[in-house]
Design a protein around this nucleic acid. Structure first.
Length: 597
DNA sequence: ATAGGGTTAG
């Protein structure tokens, strides 16, 4: 911009090319673009289509869709292929897939030439619409035209299938990938990203990352972001650490900030809050995401105080919170029962920051109130929220009812859930347990009958632990782990010692699965919950001082929570368990959640 | 002058 001013002072002629270059250089600076726009109109440059096209594109990139639209429609007969392409991209960037597709149809109807730019942008529109069928049909057309091997179209297809393809999405993506003769770095990254977005394929993300290096590509910052985020859900701390080392060695150029952001969540997801904080502290530059990630880390570990401090520090450093910040901070309140703080943040969000609370924020509030025992307020909240309460909201309420033994409200919440998620086992299991707890055996039996009638089965509990850089999986009442016999023996021995120091098994957590279980059977089932097995395996195969981090797919059960407290005491070890809601750090017979969960 | 991949949230 300074150069531009000098140029004019020195009397040089400004032409369309100068302007287009300038517009590109002022991306993200809204004032500059607006200034240039005024200048170009007053100088008559708005008769060049290239100048207008540049404005369409860069207004959109700066978040000003409306201005892009008005330039586009103001162009009339000046509109060329590039204008149409730019506008389709602009709609895609703002998640207006339907408008992008309409524009594509109009464009072809009017006889404009469709090129690779158009095709890859249209694919993007299908992705933003999550329109599997439409995208699939479009894929067919691309094959007929022989465009599917083009690298931009190819990565667009991979991205589309990995995001919209559902369960089989990645295998469709793999098919596209195999068709491409020499995949470039972006195509590899798209594959890695796809695997990391499909949580159960995280391991494939890492394999793919290694394979990419083997065939001679140097990973860039984007490759690292994708593979590190895959490591977050992998529950394999050593894998994540290794890739962190690799990232440091490869001197990734520009955007170190997003790499660090993904490292923060990778570390706290693996139970290592200290290393997450260290990454955060060492960053030279941070953005909203950095703070959000770190706050979320503290929230999941139940450290409200540190989360609040960080929030304050974020404001002090001039970074504005966004909707995600408030999900993180509210969930911190949920996990440590800070009701009045939560209410305050909820109001601040609306009043000070003018952020409209979304369904997630309401669910957090319901969770917060309910868990704290304010069931009536929680119910009022769910009835008054401006969205149709979704499964997350009802599940939060149901969880609260279970905790505070409110059968009537639980029945309502469970009923709603059963309608919304007809195949989910949770509402049935919860209700049955609550009836059993209250001694209402007939009601319990009826819930179980209807569950069986609908062929709904409880998802088996699954726990993971990494020992000596190897991942081990334990499934409740499953004997397939090669060392399961030794684990059971160890566990039995440990149970004896635990009982000596006061552990009493709480049998109400033995979920009655099929028919009546006999006395001994309940005990056996509880003993073989996956988290107990994984913890026992961790204890017997590591030495004092080594960390034990177990990850579980479901919520930790009450008896296991109590048992692991005793295990930490009897073995004199620190044990970290991450269930699907938060972290529990057991030490000296106590849990970091303070039994508030 | 226009096209492909990325970080946080439940």
């Amino acid at each position: 911009m300074n150069l531009f001013k000098r140029m004019r002072e020195l009397g040089f002629e400004v032409d369309g090319f100068t302007l287009s270059g300038l517009i590109a250089a002022s991306c993200d600076c809204i004032d500059l673009i607006k200034q240039l726009h005024c200048f170009s109109v007053s100088g008559g440059f708005d008769s060049y289509s290239s100048v207008n096209n540049a404005f369409v594109s860069y207004y959109s990139k700066s978040g000003l869709l409306k201005d892009a639209v008005s330039v586009f429609y103001g162009m009339d007969e000046l509109r060329d292929e590039v204008s149409w392409n730019s506008m389709i991209v602009a709609y895609g960037q703002h998640k207006e897939g339907a408008k992008a597709l309409a524009l594509y149809k109009e464009m072809s109807f009017k006889g404009f030439k469709i090129d690779m730019y158009t095709l890859s942008s249209v694919l993007n529109a299908f992705t933003s619409l999550d329109h599997l069928l439409g995208g699939r049909q479009f894929h067919g057309k691309l094959i007929k035209g022989g465009f599917h091997r083009n690298s931009h179209v190819g990565s667009g297809l991979i991205d589309f299938y990995s995001k919209c393809g559902g369960r089989e999405g990645m295998s469709d993506a793999e098919k596209v990938f195999r068709e491409i003769l020499s995949p470039d770095l972006v195509i590899w990254n798209t594959m890695i990203s796809g695997y990391s977005l499909n949580e159960e394929l995280s391991e494939e993300a890492v394999k793919s990352f290694r394979q990419m290096q083997r065939v001679g590509h140097r990973p860039d910052d984007c490759s690292f972001v994708c593979v590190i985020s895959a490591c977050s859900s992998l529950s394999s701390p050593s894998q994540g650490k290794q890739i962190h080392g690799l990232a440091i060695k490869s001197h990734i150029p520009w955007n170190r900030i997003s790499v660090n952001n993904s490292l923060i969540s990778m570390y706290y997801e693996n139970g290592n809050l200290q290393d997450a904080r260290q990454v955060f502290d060492l960053m030279q530059e941070r953005n909203v995401v950095s703070f959000n990630s770190m706050i979320k880390g503290y929230a999941q570990h139940g450290d409200g105080t540190e989360a609040f401090l960080l929030y304050q520090r974020m404001l002090d450093s001039g970074i504005a919170p966004n909707n995600v910040t408030f999900v993180a901070i509210l969930s911190a309140c949920v996990h440590c029962g800070k009701v009045s703080e939560g209410e305050r943040y909820f109001n601040t969000m609306k009043e000070t920051f003018k952020i409209e609370p979304e369904a997630e924020h309401y669910s957090c509030m319901i969770d917060l109130l309910g868990r704290a025992g304010k069931l009536e307020e929680a119910e009022r909240f769910i009835d008054a929220m401006p969205y149709k309460p979704g499964p997350v909201a009802w599940a939060a309420l149901l969880g609260a009812c279970r905790k505070h033994k409110s059968l009537a409200l639980a029945e309502r919440a469970a009923k709603e859930l059963m309608v919304m998620q007809p195949l989910a086992a949770t509402p049935y299991v919860m209700l049955a347990n609550m009836y059993a707890d209250a001694g209402q055996w007939e009601e319990m039996a009826s819930v179980r009958r209807s569950m069986r009638g609908k062929r709904i089965r409880k998802k088996p509990g699954c726990s993971w632990i990494e020992v000596k850089k190897e991942r081990h999986v334990f499934v409740a009442e499953d004997w397939s782990h090669p060392m399961i016999r030794q684990v059971n023996e160890y566990l039995e021995e440990m149970m004896k010692r635990m009982k000596e120091v006061g552990y009493v098994m709480d049998k109400k957590w033995a979920m009655v699965k099929e028919d009546d279980a006999g006395e001994g059977e309940e005990e056996m089932r509880l003993t073989h919950h996956s988290e107990k097995l994984a913890v026992a395996f961790g204890l017997m195969s590591t030495r004092d001082g080594e960390e034990i981090v177990v990850k579980k797919n479901l919520r930790i059960c009450g008896d296991c929570h109590n048992a692991i407290k005793f295990m930490s005491k009897v073995a004199g070890r620190e044990i970290i368990v991450r269930d699907n809601l938060r972290f529990h750090c057991f030490k000296d017979g106590k849990c970091s959640c303070g039994d508030y969960w």
